[in-house]
Amino acid sequence: MTAPSVLLCPGQGAYVPGALAEVRHLFHVRDTLRAVDAFSPGGPYTATRLLTDLSAPPPEQLIRASPLAFDLATYAGTVAAARALRFHFGHRPDAVVGHSVGDLAALAAAEAIAPVTGAAVLAARHRLLVGTPTPPGGLVALAASAEATEELLSLADGHGVRVAADNAPRQTVVSGPEPGLTAVEAVARGKGVRTTRLTGRTLYHHPLLTPVAGRLSALLRRTTVRPPTVPLYSSVRAAPLVTLEDIRRSALAHLIHPVRFRQALLALQRSGIRLFIDAGPGALLGALARATVPAARVLAPLHRRNTLERVEERLRPALGRSRPSAEPVRGRP
């Protein structure tokens, strides 16, 4: 009998060039990439090329060249990996949770939406972000607790910066306009707190994106959402997503609401989850899980572009058997 597990679906920071090169021939990988490519800007910036070609551009270069391609590749990599883990390798998670825009990938991983639906939402979000005036800004990670970060924000006089994500006991992300971020970085340096600028296109998890969220919600009201085949958990509410309306709202949460990932991990542990499986190629959420719930077991099967054999080996604690099913299932379209 295997330990109860949760599948972690990362968002920002999950794009790794050629991340799926070793598993690109799997049906669920090919199917996901084909669906997402229908919304790609084309040329060298298809999700298929970015995620299967080791010479694809790194995150900083890609987001400058094509923010939409960056968004779609981030989403496609997580969804393709999560679907492969579930339907090819046979992992049966007891819950799925996303982080930031990874909430959208989590909906697809749990089959509440089709992979193509998430791509359509991101394409619409891209058009709205381009067409909605927003001050220059972004995201900064601090090696500090949420409480310590709030104190730094107070010392920096805020300038519209607020906590965007409470990730782990000693990792918090803030979001806001550029002048405020610069002020917070200066105060943090003076206090000996390490800061890191995150690769992103705007100030996610901030009220300044309320106009974008409002317009995007109109699209989501017309979007087909289905009961998930695996229970979904919200990293914004740190609670289960119970209704279809809850699920719809979760697709917008990354725009204006802060992430409570640390609290979500602790709540999942209290519910009986003992195994945390990171679906991303960078093992970012796995690291946060290790820091927050050190007694739990954390797996990152697709970390470092693992071969099929290595993925199977890493998944054994979750599968309860030596090899995946001989006849993988396809899941919902």
Rank of each mutant, 00 (worst) to 15 (best):
3 A>W: 00
4 P>S: 12
16 V>T: 07
18 G>T: 04
23 V>P: 08
24 R>F: 07
25 H>E: 10
29 V>D: 06
31 D>E: 15
32 T>M: 10
33 L>K: 12
38 A>Q: 10
40 S>F: 06
44 P>Q: 05
48 T>Y: 13
52 T>C: 06
52 T>Q: 10
52 T>D: 05
55 S>F: 03
55 S>A: 13
56 A>R: 06
61 Q>V: 11
68 L>I: 02
69 A>F: 01
70 F>D: 07
71 D>K: 10
76 A>H: 09
86 R>T: 06
86 R>E: 01
88 H>P: 03
88 H>W: 15
91 H>I: 15
93 P>S: 12
94 D>Q: 13
95 A>R: 15
102 G>W: 07
109 A>I: 02
113 I>F: 00
115 P>E: 09
119 A>L: 06
120 A>Q: 12
122 L>W: 10
124 A>R: 15
124 A>Q: 14
126 H>N: 15
127 R>H: 13
128 L>S: 11
129 L>Y: 01
129 L>W: 01
130 V>E: 15
131 G>T: 14
136 P>I: 12
136 P>Y: 14
143 A>V: 07
148 A>T: 05
148 A>L: 12
148 A>V: 12
149 T>L: 12
151 E>Q: 14
151 E>S: 14
157 D>V: 08
157 D>R: 15
159 H>E: 13
160 G>V: 10
160 G>W: 09
165 A>F: 02
167 N>W: 10
167 N>D: 08
171 Q>N: 12
174 V>T: 00
176 G>P: 05
176 G>I: 05
178 E>K: 13
178 E>Y: 14
183 A>Q: 04
184 V>R: 03
188 A>L: 13
193 V>H: 10
200 G>V: 15
201 R>C: 09
202 T>Y: 09
206 H>V: 00
214 G>D: 14
219 L>N: 02
224 T>W: 09
224 T>E: 09
224 T>K: 05
225 V>M: 04
227 P>N: 03
230 V>D: 02
234 S>W: 04
234 S>I: 11
234 S>F: 06
237 R>D: 04
239 A>Q: 09
242 V>L: 14
246 D>Y: 13
246 D>H: 14
247 I>L: 11
247 I>K: 07
248 R>N: 01
248 R>H: 04
249 R>V: 05
250 S>Y: 04
253 A>D: 09
254 H>A: 04
256 I>D: 09
259 V>I: 10
263 Q>H: 10
263 Q>G: 13
264 A>P: 04
265 L>D: 01
267 A>W: 02
269 Q>S: 13
273 I>K: 06
275 L>C: 02
276 F>W: 04
276 F>C: 05
281 P>V: 05
282 G>Y: 03
290 R>N: 00
293 V>S: 02
295 A>E: 15
295 A>M: 08
297 R>K: 11
302 L>V: 01
305 R>C: 14
309 E>D: 12
311 V>E: 03
312 E>S: 14
314 R>S: 05
317 P>K: 07
317 P>R: 10
319 L>I: 11
319 L>V: 00
319 L>F: 08
321 R>V: 10
325 S>L: 12
328 P>K: 14
329 V>H: 08
329 V>R: 14
